[in-house]
């Protein structure tokens, strides 16, 4: 599903050059649940951003769902992200001035889905994460776990083939973290969604199919 070949990412300033990723090659199968672990600053989020087409590698090749991701225009990249990828972030990235339902509808807005259909799909996604009673709440009125469930609903509303989760349980206590993990595991087993999750939590990582470890930008496991 996702093929990374010899990915390198270098951050350059006037005086310093930092190698964030060094020759990463990965082959993630369709329906696989992969976790990425490593100490802070080892390049986990950079790797996830590159897989999510939010950042460009300095060198190397990426193929997602059979499509080579090089020389894609800004519009093509945006379209690809919208159709095929779902994102979950540690800090949720919800828009506090929009209701839960409007937050979940957001990806469909860029897909030109009509308002009625958007509403139906967003409600359905929120039902899947057990938040059908919070449609008209603002994010600020929700707990951390509920916010993350909204973010998951937003990630799955467009039925993407791949979900990229950057420390989805990082801001939550263990009970809430387990709830979120259960939802992700269910999505993976029920809908066969490919999931790549960056985590610091060994227990969570062990629940996934495969674990990749990074250290100083290099894959060590």
């Amino acid at each position: 599903m996702i093929k990374l070949h010899n990915i390198e990412k270098v951050y350059r300033t006037d005086t310093i050059e930092t190698l964030a990723l060094n020759g990463i090659s990965l082959d993630i199968e369709k329906g696989e649940f992969l976790s990425v672990m490593g100490p802070s600053g080892c390049g986990k989020s950079t790797l996830l951003n590159i897989m999510g087409l939010l950042d460009e590698p300095s060198s190397g090749a990426i193929t997602i769902a059979g499509e080579k991701i090089d020389r894609m225009s800004d519009q093509q990249l945006a379209h690809f992200r919208n159709k095929r990828l779902g994102f979950i972030f540690q800090s949720y990235h919800l828009i506090n001035d929009l209701h839960v339902l409007d937050n979940v509808e957001l990806p469909l807005l860029y897909r030109k889905v009509n308002a009625k259909e958007r509403r139906r799909l967003a409600t359905q996604a929120l039902e899947k994460v057990g938040l059908s009673n919070r449609l008209k709440h603002f994010p600020t009125q929700l707990s951390g776990g509920q916010k993350q469930r909204v973010a998951i609903a937003r990630a799955i509303v467009g039925e993407p083939e791949i979900i990229l989760a950057d420390e989805p349980t990082g801001n939550l206590d263990s009970a809430m973290g387990n709830e979120i993990m259960d939802i992700l595991l269910q999505l993976n087993s029920r809908d066969k969604t490919t999931i790549v999750m960056v985590t610091h939590d060994e227990v969570m990582a062990k629940k996934t199919h495969r674990l990749v470890r990074l250290f100083d930008g290099t894959q060590v496991q």
């Binding site: 939010l54 800004d74 519009q75 945006a78 379209h79 990235h93 957001l106 860029y110 897909r111 937003r154």
Partner: peptide
């Protein structure tokens, strides 16, 4: 900026 980043992630182009 965070909202802009999110919108880009979920499918907005620069022009959007």
């Amino acid at each position: 900026r965070s909202e802009i980043g999110l919108r880009r992630a979920v499918g907005a182009t620069g022009a959007d």
